[in-house]
C-alpha cells in the first residue's frame, strides 16, 4: 500500500483545492522511515486545526501524524474532547466514538479489519483525552487491555476537562485548583501507566511531547508492538495552557518543567520481554535500512562525479 491508492481523477485534478493536490503530490503516505523530520518539507497530514494558539496538543498531533508507520493503513479512533476538534482536518481515516467507549470501538474495528483484510497490516490507534481514557472510559480502556486487544491507546493528558471549562479529572494532580474545581483535588493523580502495565500492556510510556524525536520513537514502538504482540499505552502530557493560566508561548516550557527527574512526567517506560525482543529486532532492521540507504546515496554521488 502506498500513495497509489490515493489518486485524483486526471480530469478533476486542477479543480481540487490545493491541500488535496498537495496530499497526493507531497505527503508521506507509503514513505519508508517517515518521521517528524518530514514536517516542514512534506505535506503534513493535518490541515489548519482549530485548537488554541500555542496549544501543546497541536504539536503532539503533528508529531504523531508524522510518525505513524503506515498512515494509509491506519484508522484512528477519537473521543469527545479537544482532540475531536482536530480529527475533521486530518488526512488519516478516523472514527469519532461516544465519550469514553473509544477502546471498545477500537477493539471491534481491529478485529473487523483483521477479518476483512487478512494478512495485511492495519493499525488502529486510539487517541483520547484523560477524561475519556481514565474517567468516563476507564472500563473500556481496561477491558481492552485485559483482552489483549492489539492496538495502541494514546492519552493526551492535560490533567483536567479542558474544553468544558476546567473540571477535575482523575489525572489531575492532588491539590490542583481549577476554574470548575475550586476546592482543589483531594486525591492523588491516578497512576494509569502502572495500571496499564499490570493490566497487560506490553509497552507503556509516560512523557511529555517537548521532544519530537522522542515522540516519534515511542509512537513507532507502541504501534509496532501493538501490531505484533498486544496492547500498548502512551500517556503524553499536553498541558492546557488556558486552564493552567499560561500564555501561548509557555506550553513548551511547562512541559520541560514537568519532565524533570523528580516531576510527574519524568520519562517512564515499561517494555515486556516479548516487546523488548521485537524492538531489538526492528532496531537492527532499521540500522540495516539506513546503512543501505547511505551506501546507495554514496554510490549515486560517486556515479554523478564520474
Amino acid at each position: 500500500m502506498s500513495k497509489e491508492r490515493i489518486k485524483i481523477a486526471a480530469e478533476m485534478f486542477e479543480i481540487m483545492p490545493s491541500e488535496y493536490q498537495d496530499l497526493v503530490d507531497r505527503a508521506t503516505y507509503g514513505k519508508e522511515g517517515r518521521g517528524w523530520k518530514d514536517i516542514g518539507t512534506s505535506k503534513e497530514l493535518i490541515e489548519e486545526h482549530s485548537l488554541c494558539a500555542g496549544c501543546p496538543e497541536s504539536m503532539a498531533f503533528r508529531y504523531i501524524l508524522a510518525s505513524l508507520p503506515a498512515p494509509e493503513d491506519t484508522v484512528m479512533v477519537g473521543s469527545t474532547g479537544c482532540t475531536s476538534l482536530v480529527f475533521p482536518h486530518v488526512g488519516v481515516h478516523n472514527i469519532h466514538s461516544l465519550f469514553g467507549n473509544q477502546n471498545a470501538i477500537a477493539s471491534g474495528l481491529k478485529r473487523a479489519l483483521s477479518v476483512r483484510f487478512p494478512g495485511q497490516v492495519k493499525d488502529v490507534v486510539v487517541l483520547a483525552g484523560d477524561g475519556a481514557t481514565v474517567d468516563i472510559g476507564l472500563d473500556m480502556t481496561l477491558q481492552a487491555w485485559f483482552r489483549q486487544e492489539k492496538f495502541t491507546t494514546i492519552c493526551f493528558d492535560n490533567e483536567l476537562y479542558a474544553n468544558t471549562g476546567g473540571q477535575e479529572s482523575g489525572l489531575m494532580q492532588k491539590g490542583f485548583v481549577a476554574k470548575m474545581a475550586p476546592v482543589g483535588k483531594t486525591f492523588e493523580k491516578v497512576k494509569l501507566p502502572e495500571i496499564a502495565r499490570e493490566s497487560g500492556c506490553h509497552y507503556v510510556v509516560n512523557c511529555t511531547v517537548s521532544k519530537p524525536n522522542l515522540v516519534e520513537k515511542v509512537i513507532k514502538n507502541a504501534i509496532h508492538v501493538a501490531r505484533e504482540i498486544g496492547p500498548t499505552y502512551l500517556q503524553l502530557y499536553t498541558p492546557c495552557i488556558l486552564e493552567i493560566g499560561k500564555n501561548s508561548m509557555e506550553g513548551l516550557q511547562e512541559m520541560r518543567d514537568s519532565e524533570k527527574p523528580t516531576e510527574r512526567f519524568a520519562y517512564k517506560e515499561y517494555v515486556s520481554d516479548e516487546a523488548k525482543e521485537l524492538l531489538t529486532e526492528l532496531a537492527a532492521k532499521e540500522k540495516e535500512r539506513k546503512a543501505a540507504a547511505k551506501k546507495q546515496l554514496a554510490e549515486k554521488q560517486l556515479a554523478g562525479k564520474a
Partner: peptide
C-alpha cells in the same frame, strides 16, 4: 468521481469534464 478509485470512477470523471 473526484478520486480515481477504479476505472468506472475515472470514466465518470472524464464524462463529467
Amino acid at each position: 468521481v473526484l478520486w480515481a478509485w477504479n476505472e468506472k470512477a475515472a470514466k465518470k470523471a472524464t464524462a463529467i469534464r
